[in-house]
């Protein structure tokens, strides 16, 4: 029997579920439900529509945040990589604030911006913009001068240079930045939703915690993680289709 990749993956997941089940029977079931009861809760939550609303609200916040972050991150990256003045000024600020813990920032954002949707989106955008900025800046600086020279001697104007030389060359870096930003968005959304939402996967984890609905907590956690995982894989798929070159020589092990 040929052992193929997906068979190994499936077998691994299945074994993990079994180990989970064994562990939960050994440990205190009230604190650590077994996979079967978690699955039953999952089905209940689908019927109640809470889960669906949670997913939609969380996704909405993440998608909006990503749109802002990609736009500002890439534009800022283009500016700081090309203008020394911008790099010294804006770049220094961004460089510093990228080290601010967003979780520490949550109470400040609540104090200054309240607990509405914009506050939540701000929390996410704040964290993920800087990684996109940094990667874009690095990527554009990485452009080989000879490609620019060659393009100029072929008659390229500035628009051609940006579109046909700089962006394709910087793209692997920018893609890495965006991929990281997607992952971080799913991580920080829980902190962003912690206070004053009505729906959201992260928000309900804390609500269920306060009411001791541990299997519901686990359902939300697993759903959130699975969506994050799928988003990453989907992003890679789209990039691979649009920009196959990115993958051919560089990363055959994806």
């Amino acid at each position: 029997m040929k052992i193929t990749n997906w068979k190994i993956k499936l077998a691994t997941i299945f074994s993990l579920i079994i180990i989970w089940h064994i562990l939960s029977s050994i440990l205190d079931t009230s604190l650590f439900p077994n996979p079967f009861s978690v699955f039953l809760s999952f089905l209940d939550m689908i019927k109640e529509e809470t889960l669906l609303k949670d997913i939609l609200w969380s996704l909405r916040r993440i998608i909006i945040s990503l749109i802002f972050a990609i736009f500002f991150g890439v534009v800022l990256g283009m500016i700081t990589s090309k203008l020394s003045l911008a790099y010294q000024s804006i770049g220094t600020i961004l460089d510093y604030i990228k080290s601010i813990s967003p979780i520490a920032l949550v109470p400040f954002i609540i104090l200054w911006f309240g607990i509405g949707e914009s506050a939540k989106i701000l929390t996410i955008v704040y964290l993920i913009t800087t990684v996109i900025w940094l990667n874009t800046d690095t990527g554009i600086r990485n452009v080989n001068k000879l490609y620019l020279w060659t393009a100029k001697s072929l008659g390229a104007d500035n628009y051609d240079l940006v579109r046909h030389i700089i962006i394709p060359q910087a793209l692997p870096f920018i893609v890495t930045g965006i991929r990281t930003a997607i992952a971080w968005a799913f991580i920080i959304i829980v902190a962003a939703e912690m206070n004053g939402a009505s729906f959201g996967l992260g928000y309900h984890i804390y609500q269920y915690y306060q009411n001791f609905f541990i299997d519901k907590m686990l359902v939300n956690l697993i759903v959130l993680t699975s969506i994050a995982y799928s988003a990453d894989k989907l992003f890679l798929f789209i990039i691979k289709r649009q920009y196959g070159w990115y993958f051919t020589e560089n990363a055959k092990n994806y």
């Binding site: 080989n144 000879l146 001697s153 070159w245």
Partner: peptide
Amino acid sequence: KKPSSEISIIFQQHVLFPW
């Protein structure tokens, strides 16, 4: 004063656009 398409250059390393 600056590069133009009137004067085309072919460098030592081919510098083909890899993408």
